[in-house]
Amino acid sequence: MPPPEIRPMFPLGSPLLPGAALPLHIFEPRYRELARRCTGDDEPFGVVMIERGSEVGGGDVRAGVGCLAVIAQYRELPDGRWVMLATGDRRIRVVEWLQDDPYPRALTADWPDDPAEIPARERTAMVARLRRLRARASEIGAMGATAAESAAIDDQLAQLAMATVEASAWSFQLASLVPAGPFDRHSMLCAPDPARRLGVISEVLDGVEELLGER
Rank of each mutant, 00 (worst) to 15 (best):
Leu85Pro: 02
Glu51Thr: 14
Pro44Tyr: 04
Asp42Pro: 06
Ala63Tyr: 06
Val61Ala: 10
Ala106Lys: 05
Arg93Asn: 10
Ala35Glu: 03
Arg132Thr: 03
Leu68Met: 14
Pro44Glu: 01
Met84Arg: 03
Pro102Met: 02
Val127Ile: 09
Val95Thr: 12
Ala128Arg: 10
Leu98Tyr: 05
Tyr103His: 12
Cys67Met: 09
Gly64His: 09
Glu122Ile: 04
Ala72Gln: 15
Ala86Gln: 02
Val47Gly: 06
Arg81Tyr: 07
Tyr31His: 05
Val94Thr: 01
Gly59Glu: 02
Trp97Gly: 02
Ile71Ala: 07
Val48Arg: 04
Ser54Arg: 06
Tyr103Trp: 11
Ala120Tyr: 10
Gly46Thr: 01
Trp111Val: 05
Thr87Lys: 05
Ala63Cys: 14
Arg75Phe: 09
Ala35Ile: 03
Asp100His: 09
Thr108Ala: 11
Leu77Lys: 11
Gly66Asn: 10
Val83His: 07
Gly40Asp: 12
Cys67Asp: 03
Pro102Ser: 05
Ala72Val: 15
Leu77Met: 15
Pro29Ala: 12
Ile118Val: 15
Val70Ser: 08
Gly57Cys: 12
Glu117Ala: 14
Ala125Glu: 07
Arg123Gly: 01
Ala106Ile: 09
Arg52His: 12
Arg52Glu: 13
Gly80Asp: 12
Thr108Val: 15
Leu107Pro: 01
Val61Lys: 07
Thr39Leu: 14
Arg62Lys: 13
Val70Asn: 04
Gly57Val: 04
Arg121Ser: 11
Val56Thr: 14
Glu122Phe: 09
Asp114Val: 11
Gly57Asn: 13
Asp100Ala: 10
Leu130Met: 13
Ala116Tyr: 01
Arg30Val: 06
Val94Asp: 00
Leu68Lys: 03
Trp97Leu: 04
Glu28Gly: 08
Glu117Val: 06
Tyr74Thr: 08
Tyr31Cys: 03
Leu98Trp: 06
Arg36Phe: 07
Arg37Trp: 02
Ala72Trp: 08
Leu133Val: 07
